[in-house]
Amino acid sequence: MKVVHYLNQFFGQIGAEDKAGIEPVVKTGPVGPGVLFQELLGSEAEITATIVCGDNYFAEHIDKATEKILAMITDYHPDLVLAGPAFNAGRYGIACGAICAAVVSRLGVPAITGMFAENPGVESFRKTVYIVATRGTTAGMRDGALKMARLALKLAKGQPIGPPGEEGYLPRGLRKNYFAPETGASRAVTMLLKKLKGEPFLTEYPMPVFDRVVPLPPVERMSEVTLALITSGGIVPKGNPDRVEASSATKYGKYDISALQRLTAESHETAHGGYDPTYANEDPNRVLPLDVARDLEREGIIGRLYPYYYATVGNGTSVARAGQFAREIATELIADGVRAVIITST
């Protein structure tokens, strides 16, 4: 198999910080640490080319540099791309991560890099590329290269990749299923006894830390603003025209209510699969309060009700997906001058 290796100006043997501005160049065969990689990869793989780019050049022209380097890599039709390792060098780490990510997503070729856990490139790219954990300095070269070469060969051959601790890569923040050696019930009792004895134990799901948004200033004159209604309770027109899923929704619906004074059992229903639908189907206003919103509009308490409402199903729908729906909806609402939103959930 053919391998292309990416290095910065220092490891690419062009020069130190004074050469950090150089544009990407191609060298044939392995260079610098590439010689070690070639030895570790053995006869199965051949490093046919090395691409070298200055760290400053890359950092200052990320998009342009990525395009150029990607084109150079494409010329060699590699089966595998290696980058770095970058140890704790921030700009170099970003470059290695960005190139690997582009290779994986756009060329569909496996790519791998190595970094120290605190390299800023880790946070940016660990979800998209495998980053092998290295030491902070070049003293960790041999060990890092060994782990990178081993994992790279596995990836290139399409072999199953084990957990981070076993394979030596930094956790990617992705939850993956596997079959444990004992049942959940047995693991639970064992974990509890360890916890009670004060022995070390490993939780299988560390609690996440949620980010927060600073509250916006209040709406000043409600009687003049346009207000929109959104629900995660799955209220959709009867028959569910967009086929919003009962759970793990992959879409949301936008529905015209400009001619409606209230929702009825004949006009709307819920697509939500997570709660007893009887009451919502009987009177959908119990989830999306169109009837009273219209009353408040008539009474002049709300300036105007936005002529559409948005609906999705919150049941088992991932936080990330729901956030994406919300960002798309917000863009439309802002464009249409909406200044206040009520979201209802079941």
């Binding site: 799901y205 991932s318 936080v319």
Partner: peptide, 24 residues
């Protein structure tokens, strides 16, 4: 867990920092 198809999302609808021993 309901961590999304790619496993990249938060897994639970509610959390507490006191839940330091969880079996998934």
């Amino acid at each position: 867990e309901f961590a999304g198809v790619d496993g990249a999302s938060q897994s639970l609808a509610d959390t507490t920092p006191r839940a330091d021993a969880v079996v998934s």
